[in-house]
Every structure is written in structure tokens, then in C-alpha cells.
């Protein structure tokens, strides 16, 4: 069954009409990317899926069941986890406490310990800094922590909002490799990126968003060849 269906979703900030009927599907096991310029509505789409904005109107289905209108904490409990723009780690908690917060909604000490070990294998840098106050981590480490924390909730689908933002090229490489690794472990991923080249490198399919509308969708290889994408998002003339 389709993991996630976003169907004709409109969303507003007060009177600002940010999404104009966005439709997206994500199949189990896929990495799907959402690309677009500043202000296109990428973050708004993820925030709407995660429950921070209510679709007015529009449907959102998680494995066939409607989730639109549920509060964000309920949506997390159903297996959708957002790694928000700007990371939003808990700055005055330690790395370990942040990771434990990721497992807040679930029980099972043994499983939580297993997941901690798994996150530390995925991001050895976090494993070395479990006692450090998260606010003092570097930007790259904070991004790792934000992703690691989300994994602690055992999401069925992970929503990543610009994980490469503000990171040095080596770290961007590392983050993208890790995203592939997480996906290989069975987590379905919806990835928002400004770095379209990298995103289309790891994704199977992609959607191009412009001013709150999907203007193009295709498998990743063909999007990379597409003139509009090359001109607007890959910086080619």
C-alpha cells in the first residue's frame, strides 16, 4: 500500500495561501525528493503532513488512513517523523537526552538501547559526544543529532527538511550517504532540498514545487535531464 498520499492539499498562514492543491505520493521504501526555489512551499508541505498546518481542503493518507487534522504529536505516534528546517534540537539537553527524547512516544528499554546503539553506529561523532550539551555542537553535528533523534522514534516515514543546509561539502556528502543508509535499513523518506543535484542523486523520484504548486514530477534521472530543472535548480544555462 502507498506509504503516503498528499492529495490536493491547500494550506494557509493566516490569509497567505501557501499551498495550492499539492499532490504527492510516496511508495514504501522510496526516497522521494521535493525541490524548488525559496518560498516555493517545500517546508509548508512537510509541516502540513506533520500536522502543524491543517489542509484546507485536501487529504493526507498514511498507509491508507487519513491523518489530516490530527495534532502533530499524534502523527508522530503513527510513524511520521519530521526533521524540521533549522534542526531544532533541544539546546540545553545533552546529546543523549536529545536522543532519548526521540524515543519519548514509545516504550521498551531494550529496544531503545538497541536504537541508541544503531544511531551511534550511523553517526560515530554523536556516540563520542553523548554527554555534551547539544547547543554546543557544530552545525553538522546538530544535523546528525536531529536525524538521529528522529530515528529514535522508529519512524515508518521520515520527512527531512533541507538536511544539507549550511553544511560544508564533506558533511553534505556524509549526510546524503547516511540518508541512503537509513533508507536501506527500511525507512521511507521524503526529502526536501535546495541542493537539487544531490537530492536527485539519492532519490528515486522527485517533485518540483513552484509557488505552492507541483509543476513537474518524474523519476530522478529524467528530472536531472529536464531543461527546466537544469536551468532553474542545477544552475546550468
Amino acid at each position: 500500500m502507498t506509504s503516503l498520499v498528499v492529495d490536493g492539499v491547500h494550506a494557509f498562514y493566516g490569509h497567505i495561501h501557501a499551498l495550492h492543491g499539492v499532490s504527492i505520493t510516496v511508495q514504501p521504501g522510496e526516497i522521494v525528493t521535493l525541490i524548488g526555489a525559496n518560498g516555493a512551499g517545500k517546508s509548508t508541505t512537510l509541516k502540513t503532513i506533520a500536522g502543524f498546518l491543517r489542509p484546507r481542503p485536501g487529504r493526507i493518507l498514511l498507509e491508507g488512513k487519513p491523518i489530516a487534522g490530527l495534532p502533530p504529536h499524534e502523527i508522530t505516534r503513527r510513524g511520521v517523523c519530521l526533521v524540521p528546517e533549522g534542526r531544532r534540537i533541544f539546546p540545553r539537553m545533552t546529546v543523549l537526552e536529545n536522543l532519548e527524547m526521540g524515543a519519548f512516544a514509545r516504550g521498551g528499554r531494550r529496544e531503545i538501547q538497541d536504537d541508541l546503539d544503531r544511531v551511534c553506529r550511523l553517526f560515530p561523532r554523536l556516540g563520542e559526544r553523548l554527554g555534551q550539551t547539544a547547543g554546543t555542537l557544530s552545525g553538522g553535528e546538530q544535523q546528525m543529532l536531529a536525524i538521529g533523534r528522529a530515528l529514535m522514534s522508529r519512524p515508518r516515514i521520515l520527512l527531512l527538511d533541507e538536511p544539507s543546509m549550511g553544511l560544508a561539502p564533506v558533511l553534505v556528502e556524509l549526510i546524503f550517504r547516511t540518508i541512503q543508509e537509513i533508507n536501506a535499513q527500511g525507512v521511507t523518506i521524503l526529502l526536501v532540498e535546495q541542493n537539487a543535484l544531490m537530492a536527485l542523486g539519492v532519490a528515486r523520484r522527485g517533485y518540483v514545487l513552484e509557488t505552492g504548486r507541483v509543476v513537474l514530477t518524474d523519476v530522478a534521472e529524467r528530472l536531472r535531464e529536464n531543461d527546466l530543472v537544469r536551468k532553474s535548480y542545477l544552475g546550468e544555462l
Binding site: I89, F104, A105
Partner: peptide, 12 residues
């Protein structure tokens, strides 16, 4: 520390 992140952690 961060109400949005807290919601995402499943906290009401």
C-alpha cells in the same frame, strides 16, 4: 526549550 520539536517527539 523548543515546543515544535517537543510536538515532533510525540509530546502533547
Amino acid at each position: 526549550q523548543d515546543w515544535m520539536a517537543a510536538e515532533i517527539m510525540g509530546i502533547d
